[in-house]
Design a protein around this nucleic acid. Structure first.
Lengths: 165, 165
DNA sequence: ATTTTCTTTCAGAAATATTTGAAAGTTTAA
DNA sequence: TTAAACTTTCAAATATTTCTGAAAGAAAAT
């Protein structure tokens, strides 16, 4: 497969993946683009390559910076701002895990903690307390694993795979 | 907190969580409802409790069955179909992991395998090959961990937590 | 101080996704 | 066979999300 065709395909696929992860398509595509770009790119470069508007570019670049996935780069002698992605993939995984934990797992743990002691006498209330307790326990375990992953500096997957066989 | 208030809050929260996971809100809410219901519920029960239409109910119940998260139950002497959720939370986690792996991780691994050997000579093509190779490697490791989780019958989290400290 | 270059914002337009409700389809019972 | 009870489908309506483009805002250069 030719490089340009492959790049196109990869960017489209990354965009799709983003959607099913609750991240918008353009944001994923910009990220994909910066990941494989040897040099930092400007807003205009990105607009041109992905055929998107200035507003859309700007908005999603900001979102990527909020996620800690890309950063601003100052190119000496240039007025424009350039952006580059962190290329360490393990680091990318950790960053994504950190953000998703914060945005999704933490809130649900908070809710479950609040509701799992609900007052009530019937079978309904009893079942509710049981299930929400189980959910809370599971969520808390997942949190521990994620924390471990997030804190790990070295290749965590390898460790697990080694120890668990 | 009173039981009814807690239940309401829990169902809303589960719906939110669903959205950010790329699952639609109603689907998550039906699941949440069945999870804490001591008896199986009929389509009508669900429509009434969540204030949604028949079509919406039907569609999302089917989706939940596709995911393997709920199942039909025949109540003796009743024409209606009833639905109940699997209440084993670890099992729920495994089922979700299985589906998401199939729908999200597997396709991206396929694409990365196809593109990471792209032909091309410049620095761009070289960088492309390097990054997509790293991504593929990461995705493959993640796949191994998920497979391990999916196959595990017992409490996998505990095992890891025990072995890794 | 004025102009030029670049960045940010945001109201409205466009695209997507979800939901409704009524009609068609199915199954069971009489 | 017919009717009643229930389930499924899907076109149209709604709601939500994303995107555009033009205008306003900032920063740097002249």
């Amino acid at each position: 497969m030719k490089y340009l065709e492959a790049k196109e395909k990869y960017i489209q696929a990354w965009g799709m993946l983003g959607s099913s992860w609750g991240v918008n398509r353009t944001m994923s595509q910009i990220h994909a683009l910066l990941l494989v770009s040897p040099q930092p790119l400007s807003t205009e470069d990105i607009m041109e390559e992905l055929k998107i508007s200035r507003g859309n570019s700007n908005m999603n670049i900001r979102a990527l910076m909020d996620w800690g996935l890309i950063e601003k780069v100052l190119v000496p002698g240039e007025r424009k701002e350039y952006f580059k992605s962190n290329k360490d993939i393990m680091n990318l995984g950790i960053q994504v895990a950190r953000e998703r934990k914060r945005r999704e797992l933490d809130p649900i743990i908070k809710i479950l903690s609040e509701v799992h002691g609900a007052e009530g006498t019937g079978a309904e209330a009893a079942e509710f307390r049981k299930v929400t307790k189980d959910l809370l326990q599971f969520a808390t375990q997942a949190e521990s694993v994620l924390d471990l992953f997030i804190k790990s500096k070295q290749n965590w997957f390898m460790k697990i795979l080694g120890k668990l066989r």
